[in-house]
Design a protein around this nucleic acid. Structure first.
Lengths: 244, 244
DNA sequence: CGCGTCGTTGATTCGTCTCAAGAATCGTGG
DNA sequence: CCACGATTCTTGAGACGAATCAACGACGCG
């Protein structure tokens, strides 16, 4: 793992970070928040396309996304890649390394990004002392399990248009939670990555998005999405048979 | 949640439990193991078809399977059920409740079963005192995330026969880890439940299993499975195009 | 400006679902 | 113990949705 892809930055301060209310140390009192900041020696820049960690890398750090977006993926022995999630600022990367001391998936920046690097050993010690932080951590882990279950539901029992609708709605909701527009945003990932995530081919993703545009549910130009009819998208998920 | 489906049993003792080396309190010293046993007030019998907990039930307990098997499932607002996992003795149920104080999925006994009931509050306190137990718990949570990723890979990028092969191999491996035969076991779940889990219809499950039997990879009579050619099953997952 | 990556769209093929009927098994009560 | 209905499983024929193959267009970077 060469360091060439990374640029170390001065220690970030959690106290002044805009994400402090949604990130790992949320709800910490200002004293503890300050102390927590000290266990983070530095943040890292990761450039588009570069990997933050790979499967089987030894697990030493957790990462909080500060800026940019990541995908995580697993690759079967035969070489097929499956995207398992997209991560935006305030979300935690590396959780599936906790159980085995080595990472289970790859994490790749899908745009230039910056992460906080949290040494897991120190973090663990801190958790043992601070029950609020420990609670947060368990909560984040459990939420990751829930996220997985939602994805299973999506992959296992939805049709292509339902998958895409649910995908767009999920993004919409997460952008809104971060203070951005819930109706206008940019798809940071390619059609192929969306397809891998949803169990579809990139052509199908493209087709369905075009169909949504034809039905005036969305406007889409390349990576720019504008949701025109939020209720209509939701309706796709609830209606048994959609009208043409 | 009536209690009629459950039968309380005297407090089980972790020290004498046959699963102590694979269950939550694994690796605990005998003193701690004994102390841990005391926070478990009782075990519960759950009969086939009954639910241990439902989505949105308030989260107060974790459950360790002692005897029997469970499925977990989530149901979309429109009523389609998706099975998210099968659980056998030594595995922990209720993990996705940790993040939100209420359960996220349903857990249903697929055969008569018995679980240890762990009050989460007390468990949390115990974890704060015992770093080995805390470690185990994090490990179990993280393993659950990994399990989810594996399922995603299976649901998202495999064909029907590959899904079934990978499903059988997973069962085989888990039975072996529990001291049972890895080539002969009983499918506790129905074809429909397997199908829901794998994103297939029950007819497809049945067809593929018959095809495996025709190819002498397995013998199957109802729920009884006998794997004749373990390597052959694995080959299905690695070969690009299988011969007829 | 030219090249590579990414996205769109069309024609055709293939895999899985759907619908349907029948067989095997289990549980229950007479 | 056997008869009964209720599940569960198997198998077939046809329909449909998504994959595949292929060509072209749009954008971004050097």
């Amino acid at each position: 793992m060469g360091l060439k892809n990374f640029k170390q930055c001065p220690s970030p301060s959690c106290s002044t970070c805009g994400l402090k209310n949604i990130c790992l140390p949320k709800k910490l009192a200002s004293e503890e928040l300050k102390a927590f900041g000290f266990i983070i020696p530095h943040s890292k820049k990761v450039f588009k396309g570069d990997k933050l960690f790979r499967k089987a890398d030894s697990f030493k750090y957790l990462y909080c996304v500060r800026i940019g977006s990541f995908k995580t993926s697993v690759t079967s022995p035969e070489g097929t890649e499956q995207v398992t999630g997209f991560y935006m600022p305030g979300e935690v990367l590396g959780l599936c390394g906790v159980s085995s001391n080595s990472h289970y998936c790859d994490a790749t920046a899908i745009e230039d990004a910056e992460v906080c690097v949290i040494p897991y050993k120190k973090f663990e010690e801190f958790c043992n002392k601070d029950s609020q932080l420990n609670k947060n951590f368990l909560s984040v882990l459990s939420a990751e399990v829930v996220r997985g279950h939602k994805n299973l539901l999506s992959l296992g029992s939805l049709r292509a248009d339902e998958k895409l609708a649910s995908f767009l709605l999920d993004l919409s909701q997460r952008y809104e939670a971060r203070g951005y527009s819930r109706t206008e945003f940019i798809l940071r990932m390619t059609r192929g990555e969306i397809g891998s995530f949803l169990g579809l081919k990139l052509e199908t993703v493209s087709r369905v998005l075009s169909k949504f545009a034809d039905s005036n549910l969305i406007e889409i130009h390349q990576k720019r999405v504008h949701i025109l009819n939020l209720a209509g998208l939701k309706a796709i998920l609830t209606e048994e048979c959609r009208p043409e």
